[in-house]
């Protein structure tokens, strides 16, 4: 029973006594049922006197009842609400069980399972979508909960030289007026120390501090450990996060005539969660689908490449496989 029917029942009850008290016959002037016209005519004569009485009473009583009903209607609603609350409480146990089951179902739903479906109303009928792209599968939820609530972050592997910083020895003149940070490097066999002037790329600190909140940062450089370590220490001191791991030249794969190749299997086995930012295509030759290329930076003070990558990197946090986005650099070949 809903509230409206409940209300109508209640509103009909106060009007009943009037009709029953004022008129003895069922077919009064405001009666509902009319059996036949003849009977009506007969009764009319009998009821004429009673009708007059009736109208006299209803003129006073009806408005009063109406006002009374309007005033008390909120109370009636509240009463109805209380009753239904009690009902809910009495059946709450059953409801709880059902609700629990629903929650379990929600969690059990693995969002990686995609629902099979063809394109509805495809412009080219059956041929559309099936020929080249296969059937379209739709996820139940946009971002799977395993990624949304995962403690584990994706990994971002960043190159050092020409990507985050640029360093030069004293002899090389630098267009930047600022002198940059000095790093003294002593290579073990010769023990001759060399002085490097290191310059940060514009927005480097902002980039690192933002990105370190979204990813586990890993630095992977093709330069020597002796040189890279002090530079990385200096970088770490100027932003809030930290590099989880440092990888150097000896972690790279050397290929004759090509150079140092950064094989991401050193970082992790799960390649769908690793992004590599590098300026040299040689570095990511083995993991082309994981790489974001940036322009190599030497001295341009108005460079905004790191800033431009921030929206993309922020959005990449939640994708299920970074390779399917970063692989799009090959155009249609990525679609298979």
């Amino acid at each position: 029973m809903n509230a409206i029917s409940y209300l109508s029942n209640l509103s009909s009850t106060p009007s009943n006594p009037i009709s029953s008290s004022s008129s003895s016959s069922s077919s009064s002037s405001h009666g509902v049922l009319v059996e036949s016209e003849e009977e009506q005519e007969d009764n009319d004569e009998v009821n004429q006197f009673q009708n007059e009485n009736d109208e006299g009473e209803s003129i006073f009583l009806k408005p009063f009842h109406l006002i009374w009903f309007v005033i008390t209607s909120p109370l009636i609603l509240i009463e109805y609400g209380l009753k239904s609350k009690q009902k809910v409480e009495s059946t709450s146990r059953k409801g709880e069980i059902i609700r629990k089951k629903e929650v379990d179902d929600d969690l059990a739903e693995d969002e990686m399972f995609l629902q099979r479906d063809t394109v509805k109303g495809g412009l080219r009928g059956k041929a559309f979508g099936t020929k080249k792209m296969g059937r379209f599968l739709f996820p139940k939820k946009l971002v799977p909960q395993s990624i949304l609530f995962a403690e584990r972050k994706k990994r971002l592997v960043v190159d050092l030289d020409e990507t985050l910083i640029h360093s030069a020895t004293r002899s090389v003149s630098h267009s930047n007026s600022a002198q940059g940070h000095m790093v003294e490097v002593r290579f073990p066999p010769s023990s001759i120390s060399t002085l490097y002037y290191v310059h940060k790329r514009p927005h480097c600190d902002l980039f690192l501090s933002k990105v370190s909140k979204w990813y586990d940062l890993i630095i992977f450089t093709a330069s020597m450990k002796e040189y890279a370590d002090p530079v990385i220490d200096w970088l770490e001191s100027s932003f809030t996060g930290k590099f989880c791991k440092r990888l150097y030249r000896h972690n790279c794969v050397v290929r004759e005539g090509v150079g140092y190749i950064k094989d991401l299997s050193v970082v992790t086995e799960v390649l769908d969660e690793v992004v590599l930012i590098d300026n040299s295509p040689t570095s990511y030759a083995r993991n082309e689908d994981n790489a974001i290329q940036v322009e190599g930076w030497i001295s341009d003070p108005s460079d905004t490449d790191l800033l431009n990558l921030l929206p993309l990197l922020e959005a990449l946090r939640y994708v299920t496989d970074v390779r399917s986005i970063l692989g799009l650099k090959n155009g249609e070949k990525a679609l298979g």
Partner: peptide, 23 residues
């Protein structure tokens, strides 16, 4: 339970594009 190899690459890419676009 569907293995990941069942999912066509187009659907996978489009799904990830959806996530990217939404963010």
């Amino acid at each position: 339970v569907k293995s990941s190899s069942d999912i066509t690459s187009a659907s996978k890419i489009f799904r990830n594009l959806l996530i990217l676009e939404d963010d």
